[in-house]
């Protein structure tokens, strides 16, 4: 069972649909082992902070990164970014009006129109 604090899940999660998309893009990039996604937060974007997403097959650096594995995909979060992402679920929104990868981040007090930038 995931650790929770004040009802917030103390980890970063990935939905099954997002995990399938990560695997799909990883396969297209020729990544077959250690399929994962590196998630980070950078300064910038309309609201101050922006998400950075990279599909990877590289191993985890446990000194600087935290890792959660769900649905066969490693979600790797750089430790400095972790405080902005605790409780976040990475989902995928498809279809004609879909936004692609979507972050459901409980820490975000405000987000910009395109959803890639937020403030805490």
């Amino acid at each position: 069972m995931p650790v929770t604090q004040n009802g917030v899940q103390m980890t970063v999660a990935i939905s099954e649909k997002a995990a399938e998309k990560i695997k799909y893009f990883a396969q297209k990039d020729g990544i077959e082992e250690n399929v994962g996604v590196r998630v980070a937060v950078k300064g910038g974007g309309c609201s101050g902070l922006t998400y950075d997403l990279k599909i990877t097959g590289d191993l985890v650096d446990t000194d600087t990164e935290k890792v959660v594995e769900q649905h066969g995909v490693k979600v790797i979060v750089e430790k400095k970014s972790y405080i902005y992402l605790v409780g976040t679920e990475l989902d995928f929104s498809d279809g004609l009006n879909g936004k692609g990868f979507v972050f459901e981040n409980p820490n975000a007090k405000k987000a910009c129109g395109c959803g890639t930038s937020f403030s805490v």
């Binding site: 980070a40 937060v41 950078k42 300064g43 910038g44 101050g48 902070l49 750089e78 400095k80 970014s81 902005y84």
Partner: peptide
């Protein structure tokens, strides 16, 4: 201001 948004940089 720059320091506030320097996270991984």
């Amino acid at each position: 201001w720059l320091d506030k948004y320097t996270i991984m940089e």
